[in-house]
């Protein structure tokens, strides 16, 4: 039996300031080798889930547990969660003026190596690694010299997110609306990169509200997420059913 990577039990969480609960008793188990898709209507709190898992300071967990590779995920600082193997491809990657992309990536790779007690890569070693990876994602040397995400198109940003995933080799990658704002070519690059990375030892959680990406990366499990918890789970057919009938039926059925 393959090992459990992520185990969420009865999670309650929300925005720290407003004390409004957004996640209301969520349960989810993800095992190595699996691809899960969480689908839900706009405003259901899908992004909240990704932020709570990665430890964004503005969010507070009010109940439940999250175990990640056997560790208590919620006890770790955001950078420790990343180093422990959790990766988030953000819906809106953040621009950082003044920080060159290649420099940023080197900091990230070496910070994680340092965390694991590995020697840091020197400039030449890192450049070699980066060149190989960049090629796969159609990221040019010129783009790597630019300030990270500053003036990048939607497609460039998402390609760079997946490039980071490939460099950092997480055990669980969360793709939060990875398909938003992408044309079909860019979507294919993202999907191919993800498929290349995915193997029997890691897992993928795709958060989306439509089918485009799921047609390219076939999920093993589909969960319908509404009002802060999972209302129904199934296989890929559930996504197809959803596409035909819309969220309304599932939400009404629950009531």
């Amino acid at each position: 039996m393959s090992k459990t990577i992520l185990q969420i039990k009865d999670l309650h969480a929300g925005v720290a300031e407003s004390q409004k609960e957004i996640i209301k008793g969520l349960n989810l188990e993800i095992k190595a080798g699996e691809i899960h898709a969480v689908m839900g209507p706009n405003g259901a709190g899908k992004s909240t889930l990704s932020y709570v898992l990665t430890g964004k300071p503005d969010y507070a967990v009010t109940g439940g547990t999250v175990s990640f590779n056997g560790q208590d995920l919620l006890a770790l600082a955001p950078h420790e969660r990343a180093a422990a193997g959790l990766f988030l491809s953000m819906q809106y990657p953040v621009a950082i003026p003044g920080v060159a992309t290649n420099n940023f990536l080197k900091h990230a790779v070496n910070a994680q190596r340092k965390y694991h007690g590995l020697p840091e890569l020197d400039a030449a070693e890192f450049l070699k690694l980066l060149r190989q990876t960049a090629k796969e994602f159609d990221v040019s040397a010129e783009m790597l010299k630019r300030e990270i995400n500053v003036g990048f198109s939607g497609g460039e940003k998402k390609r760079l997110e997946i490039l980071q995933m490939s460099l950092l080799q997480p055990s669980l990658a969360i793709l939060d609306e990875a398909d938003s704002g992408l044309d079909i070519d860019a979507l294919k690059i993202v999907a191919n990169g993800v498929k290349k990375w995915h193997n029997q030892d890691n897992a993928l959680l795709i958060i989306t509200h439509h089918l485009d990406l799921l047609n390219l990366i076939e999920p093993d499990f589909v969960h319908i997420y509404a009002d802060g918890h999972i209302v129904q789970s199934g296989d890929k057919n559930l996504a197809v059913e959803l596409e035909q009938s819309g969220y309304k039926n599932f939400l009404d059925a629950e009531k």
Binding site: D58, P78, H79, L88, V94, G98, Q112
Partner: peptide, 29 residues
Amino acid sequence: DKEQLFYMQTRGIDEQQAIAILITAYIDE
């Protein structure tokens, strides 16, 4: 910028180093 700090942290860079990187970027201009 808190969003920039968090973005770096999700890549494994600790808060202190992220702050140092942002300061460097700030004065680099």
